[in-house]
Design a protein around this nucleic acid. Structure first.
Length: 478
RNA sequence: CGCCGGGUAGAGCAGUGGCAGCUCGCGGGGCUCAUAAUCCCGAGGUCGGGGGUUCGAAUCCCCCCCCGGCAACCA
């Protein structure tokens, strides 16, 4: 039986529109999923949307929609964005799915039955106008709600809490031992640092929130949104309703996310799983943030890049390539808008695209459109499985492009256009063209997880009974 | 002293004890199969500052300066 590989992205909050950050995480997950499929693994790649909570209800009201319609609309935006980016997810979960809700109920009941959920009181500043709790920092100088100009009331409500403290030592030990592998290593350090600071039990329910999944043991309370959101990773693969399916996929091999939500994934989530006697995930990988021209990406600054714009300008494959090749995956990195075009022209049009053009053209012109010799590629393409599986995408791509340079050098050194003039060099020319064709084939396979249609196009061209130069893969941009 | 990163060529980044590297850009030359693409050569760096350890430090230790993040759920 084939080995399985289960990879997840976070589920994205429907309050947001899809932006470059969502695209970045999801493309990275897609590359891994495609890589493992290509290797023969049985892959399950999950993404989706997180749809409950007071903020969603609020936004829906503003848009004069009922929450469900609002969610339907915005969730569809993510689906479309991912479709445009050629994301090969096997399932798209929505937390408003019936199956998810049922699974969450079951999970919460298990935690309750095991005695790891207890009743407590949450105290906070509640604004009646907003119908929500406010944080000190949300208030203006006078201590008023900025929207309603009135001070919020001190209110306490009944909440249920999860007994995190009971599991902290255990989770810490699992992370230290790499049973839960937190990557990159610097993030592991950070997470371990959080244990030193001390962590408190957290509330898992809300009394005043209407838009959510009721707690099975107290229907008046809704499950707190991110507690429930984490559970998508098990509900999507059958927890609570399909034991066989669940046994097949769980535990997740990689939970991929940006670094802002690592605490929930590396600490709270494993703790809840331990409480429910479920295996913990294998790898938690937190990647970095973009900044644009040294400025943090944010809606207020208006410098958020819509992936759709990039696709319009560069095409799908180039967008995928440009995002992953900018800087090491685990780190933060700054990019300049102009860099996208430079890199597009240099790497995709000039190097890869032009190489394909010149090789195909020579096969067409000098060999009548048929690969004249079946010979192995003389260029060593490092078997990059290890690097790609450690999510070192920039290194994998770097190696690939070094090989492309070598192919270009090989052509210049041998001057096939001169060989073609000289009948006595025909055999040598045939071998060279065969070698180049073999290299392009290797290259196409290696590139396919990153740029699926480009890989397919190259393979298609080479498999054609009559090889032609064809159109450029990547048109140079002015 | 809350915790964790980072400061290396014009730009973006590798390098974590042994001659300072990669990509882009820039300057010069070559080629003509190719998308004014490709190939070769070159210029460009007191490796944030100071002190120390060492035969030898970008790399290890100490102090300082600057930038960012987490703690405080925008991927």
């Amino acid at each position: 039986m084939a080995k399985k590989f289960y990879i997840t992205t976070p589920i994205y909050y429907v309050n947001d529109k899809p932006h470059i950050g969502h695209a970045y995480t999801t493309i990275a997950a897609d590359v891994l999923a495609r890589h493992y499929r290509q290797k023969g693994y049985d892959v399950f790649f999950l993404t989706g949307t997180d749809e409950h909570g007071a903020k969603v209800a609020e936004s829906a009201a503003k848009a004069r929609l009922d929450p469900q319609s609002f969610c339907d609309q915005n969730s569809a935006l993510f689906k479309e964005a991912f479709k445009e980016l050629n994301i090969s997810n096997d399932f798209f979960i929505r937390t408003t799915d019936e199956r998810h809700a049922a699974s969450v109920s079951k999970f919460m009941q298990v935690l309750y039955d095991r005695g790891d959920i207890y009743e407590g009181t949450y105290e906070g500043l509640y604004c009646v106008g907003c119908e929500k709790f406010m944080k000190e920092r949300d208030l203006d100088e006078a201590g008023n709600c900025p929207d309603h100009g009135k001070p919020p009331e001190k209110v306490s409500e009944k909440n249920y809490f999860f007994n995190l403290s009971k599991y902290l030592k255990q989770v810490q030990a699992l992370i230290e031992a790499d049973t839960i592998t937190v990557l990159p290593a610097t993030k592991k350090q950070e997470v371990l640092g959080l244990f030193k600071q001390g962590l408190e039990d957290f509330s898992v329910s809300r009394e005043k929130v209407a838009w959510g999944i009721p707690l099975p043991f107290d229907q008046k309370q809704k499950t707190y949104v991110w507690v429930e959101a984490l559970q998508n990773y098990i509900s999507a693969v059958g927890y609570g309703d399909h034991e066989k399916e669940f046994a097949k996929w769980w535990p997740a091999d990689v939970h991929l996310m940006a670094r802002d939500i690592i605490k929930f994934h590396a600490i709270y989530w494993p703790a809840m799983l331990l409480a429910a006697d479920i295996e913990v995930p294998r790898v938690i990988y937190a990647h970095g943030f973009f900044s644009l021209d040294k400025r943090k990406m944010s809606k207020t600054l208006g410098n958020v890049i819509d992936p759709h714009e990039l696709v319009q300008e560069f095409g799908v494959d180039a967008t995928r390539y440009l995002l992953l090749s900018q800087f090491p995956f685990g780190q933060d990195g700054d990019i300049k808008r102009s860099l996208f075009k430079e890199k597009y022209n240099a790497d995709l049009a000039n190097n890869l695209g032009n190489l394909v053009s010149r090789v195909l053209n020579m096969i067409e012109k000098y060999a009548g459109g048929v690969i004249p010799a079946q010979v192995p590629s003389p260029i060593y393409l490092e078997h990059s499985d290890e690097k790609i599986e450690q999510l070192q995408f920039d290194l994998v791509l770097n190696e690939l492009w070094q090989a492309i340079d070598q192919a270009n050098q090989l052509i210049d050194e041998n001057e096939p256009w001169k060989m073609a003039q000289d009948e006595s060099k025909k055999a040598g020319l045939d071998v060279l063209l065969g070698q180049l064709a073999a290299f392009l084939m290797d290259c196409a396979v290696a590139i396919r997880p990153f740029m699926p249609s480009t890989g397919e196009k190259i393979i298609g061209s080479l498999m054609s009974p009559r090889i032609e130069k064809g159109d450029p893969l990547f048109q140079r941009l002015k």
